[in-house]
């Protein structure tokens, strides 16, 4: 999928726009003393039409989510297509061990974590700041214009954004290098220099996604009682003080939920863009766990080995998510589960 509008891997902001909304959802269900078996069966039979409506969705999840989950076991086998998921010989943790002791392990972990952390550190606060700024504007033409413009790049595909980067940063004909030479500098071959990979990645994420992520915070800010602001203004609070004491506490639950989600998805973020931005010359920084899974798994057909690496990534992710959810719970913030 592409861009910030992503069906599968990331969370559409729409779904989390609610202060504390995740809480109300019956995510964790406890078995209740149910009706007796026969009654139960009758209820199920009576609802058959509902199950028919639900069937396509269930099939989709069974085939494209749970079957691959079941297939994760090839991380502990030597997969060959003839024997399939279950028949391939069991090798235990050999693949994981090979990954941990491979020379790329350290580089991959470092690159992935650095990219993820830098990305989070920049991409998390920027939309909040943008929302607070836009919220200062009175409703009118300029506010509408700014909102639309900031929002628009989210609809551009990742391929096009990366294509724009290649074109605009081109060492010979690119706009950016013209500006650099105009200022008296020497042209930089951005795509060939590893140390430029992360700034380009994060910078383009800000350009493309910050305005879209801002919308959630704007919606939350719109929910703050204007009377609070009025009262504060009468008491002589400045705009900055009102942001500090009214706006920020008002959107804190939303910030908290989105932060948990962002941390939980830390290692999943934007691997497609990393793949597109990767060149042989910047691979020493741009090779992250997921691009490596793609390379080892699909280009070199090492199915089991790459599945093991992917599994390592998923488990790490899950651990992060659960940890942060627990931390948020301890601090009595809104939590996801």
């Amino acid at each position: 999928m592409a861009g910030p509008i992503d069906l599968d891997r990331r969370v559409p902001p729409a779904a989390v726009a609610l202060p504390g909304g995740g809480q109300g959802d019956p995510v964790v269900s406890r078995p209740r003393p149910g009706p007796r078996p026969r009654q139960r069966l009758r209820r199920v039979l009576r609802a058959w039409q509902l199950y028919v409506l639900l069937l396509p969705a269930l099939l989709h999840f069974a085939i494209f989510k749970f079957w691959p989950m079941y297939g994760v076991q090839i991380a502990f086998r030597n997969f060959n297509p003839v024997d399939g998921f279950l028949g391939s010989p069991w090798v235990g943790t050999a693949h994981l061990e090979r990954f941990f002791s491979s020379f790329q392990f350290e580089m991959l972990i470092q690159n992935t974590l650095q990219l993820a952390v830098v990305n989070l550190a920049v991409m998390f606060p920027v939309p909040i700041i943008l929302a607070l700024l836009v919220n200062q504007l009175t409703y009118g033409r300029f506010r509408q214009f700014a909102q639309t413009v900031l929002y628009a790049p989210a609809f551009i595909s990742t391929v096009i954004v990366v294509g724009m980067i290649y074109v605009l940063l081109s060492p010979r004909s690119g706009l950016v290098n013209h500006l650099i030479t105009l200022g008296g500098g020497a042209p930089i071959f951005f795509m060939a220099e590893p140390e430029w990979f992360r700034p380009i990645y994060v910078g383009s994420s800000v350009w493309q996604e910050a305005g879209f992520s801002m919308i959630i915070y704007l919606a939350a800010l719109a929910g703050i009682d204007p009377a609070l602001h009025e009262a504060a203004r009468i008491d002589g609070a400045s705009a900055l003080q009102r942001i500090r004491h009214i706006d920020l506490p008002g959107i804190a639950p939303v910030i908290s939920i989105l932060f948990i989600l962002a941390v939980g998805n830390l290692l999943n973020i934007g691997f497609e863009k990393a793949l597109l931005l990767q060149t042989p010359l910047n691979a020493s920084e741009s090779q992250i766990i997921q691009t490596y899974v793609y390379q080892a798994g699909l280009q070199e057909a090492q199915f089991s080995y790459s599945t093991a690496i992917g599994l390592f990534n998923s488990v790490l992710n899950l651990a992060l998510l659960l940890t942060f959810n627990w931390v948020a719970k301890r601090f009595k913030q809104a939590t996801l589960i």
Partner: peptide
């Protein structure tokens, strides 16, 4: 499925 994903390769094989 939000919390755990089989991953790119098993999905490809499916």
């Amino acid at each position: 499925t939000l919390f755990f994903d089989g991953g790119m390769i098993p999905r490809y094989l499916v």
